[in-house]
Write a protein that binds this DNA or RNA. Sequence first.
RNA 1: GCGCCCAUAGCUCAGUUGGAUAGAGCAACGGCCUUCUAAGCCGUAGGUCUGUGGUUCGAAUCCACAUGGGCGUACCA
Length: 676
Amino acid sequence: MLLTLHRTIKTQLQAAVKKSFEIELALADITAEYPPKTELGDLAFPIAFEIAKRLKAATGTKQNPRQLADKLRSELQAIDGVARIETAGAGYINFFLDRGRVFNTVFNAEKSLKLDEITGGKLIVEHTSINPNKAAHIGHLRNAVLGDTIVRMLQASGETVETHNYIDNTGVQVTDVVVGFKYIENKTLTDIEAITERFDYYCWDLYAQVGKFYEENPDNKKLRAQTLHEIEQGEGETALIAEHVSNRILKAHLDTMWRLGIAYDVLPRESDVLHLNFWQTAFEKLKEQGGIYFETEGKNKGCWVMRAEDKTETPAEDETESQYEADKILVRSNGTVTYTGKDIAYHLWKLGQLGLDFHYRPFYTYSNGKPVWITTAKEATENGKDLGFGNGVAYFNVIDVGQSYPQAYVKLGVKLLSTDDRIDRSAHLAYEKVVLTPASAKELGYELSEADSKRTQVSMSGRKGLGVKADDLIDKLEEKVFAKVNSDDRYSEVSLAERKDISHRIAVSALRYFLLKYTRSSVIAFDFEEAQAFEGETGAYLLYAVVRGNSIFRKLREQGKSTEVNLTSEEINNLLSLKENSGWDGDYLWGLIYFASRLPDSLRLSISSLEPTHLAKYSYHLASSFSNFYNKNAYKLIEQKDNTRYQLLVALVGYVRCQLEQALRILTGVEPVEKM
RNA sequence: GCGCCCAUAGCUCAGUUGGAUAGAGCAACGGCCUUCUAAGCCGUAGGUCUGUGGUUCGAAUCCACAUGGGCGUACCA
């Protein structure tokens, strides 16, 4: 309804502009804003400034925007749903909405966040994609939480989403751990299978040892090359060890992420991209298309390369060596394909432009019964092919900013072979790293080099075993919350299992919100205190606001009071413009309702910018407004004797609570707890 | 060299794509438990938006240059 109203107002303004100034404005050129204060109205249009600019360009004389605004104002007809129109400031035209009408509409409307500008086709979101060779750390959590929140945002808006977690099971990282098992620990597959301690933690330590192993003796690096080759061949004990390690670590990762409510639909594996000849197919297509080149001279002699976007022509002879640097090698001179090459093939498959498919088998089942499928190179008895994975109308890759360069070439490569615009809708969602402060690194017990101690931040490094393990952090947070829950009288009647569950949900909302409150481009300098906070701007606060809203309704039910609402627009209008010494302030209440109604706007903004922070900040702001309302005596429902006021407050609390709960689900994946 | 990102309150960060008086949290100080749950609320204090120019009705936001940080630019992934 609000959307329709916006459109009606813009159309009116458009007509007024044409009539008064003979200027044709597109609806898209008319921007609406929310005024900074309720007294200034509900919608503001800085359109007079735009007109002044255009008039000056056309006639050369300056115009006073305020006078132009007054002129436009006088041309506007009465609009259904608009109470009054004013000009203000240097030239704003401000609209005051019919509060009763708006409130009745949003209160009675379906409480879904479906947006009308969705793509409609299947969107593929790839996130997490951790090398399956060691435990997940806090940086991986940032990736997964960002990705999962984007999945939830898109789903809430009405999109169909498929979630991928790409498994690089044949890369150097898995290889290194295999080297560790075979050549440092001299273990066989049977020995490794018999390891009973936490496997992802075991490999975390082993991986750090392998780094030292290579440093001690450069010859040891030859073992890596040899092992990598054996793994790529896919035969023999070495390949079986790699398979065991990557599968077992992968399961550990799925467990870790599931603790935060993060799940995947399908796990495409690099080994299957290789064995099913995805690359060969893509390679033939690329050669046929002519977008890649075989270098016969220069430093890339013998390689197949792709040119940078702005120079697809063969460079002239006088161009310097440095300009060649931008070319990306897809096939090495020894004939093997690079990661970028493989990724182009994989992304062609994602967008249904390769003409090949994986085989699939079930790999894992979440505690709620939802299965996760994994790709295989062989026909499986329980094949998931009919599930129709891949073939999306766009992909979104949540990958750290460090990989922007190869990601740009993946997009370029796919675009060469694209038959439609789905690649243009696709995007690499780059995000910055989570780093440690020297202080937090020391707190973890790491000895820093002199150079590192002087830095403001220290990168986490699996190779050095330096980092905060995801499960350790979640454990710590849960313990911290549990300690508080246990010492609080409010939970005295609550069972132990329930207290654990409540602690878990609070911890998850706190941790996820912590990772979402930064913009993607902001480096997070990890701080134990901040990451484990549950006061102030945190996920726990958001959850608390929802719980308070729920408890109002629980109290009303316990007291046998009705929660039926049946008010006319006139009654609502009266209450929302009333101001009394008792503390009742209609403007204030209207401000809260109107702000709560903007959740879809916030979601739209977060989706269009692929930036969950906007939704997180909005949600916190709404929770904060609700808490302020909650503390005002004039609005206590329990004590409200006047029936119309009671109904209005019931409707208001119900509406705000519902908006907050939807936001909470998207951001944290958590269902509200009973008590907090 | 080239390219990308960042610089806003003591600290950590937002700032709706150029709009009205630059906002939060933490930390500090003062007040509020006779609770629709104090994991909360209210108040006070805190700013040369890194610097210098430019664009215009208007700039934290756009442009140029400068300074200081981070990252990328592999026949690694």
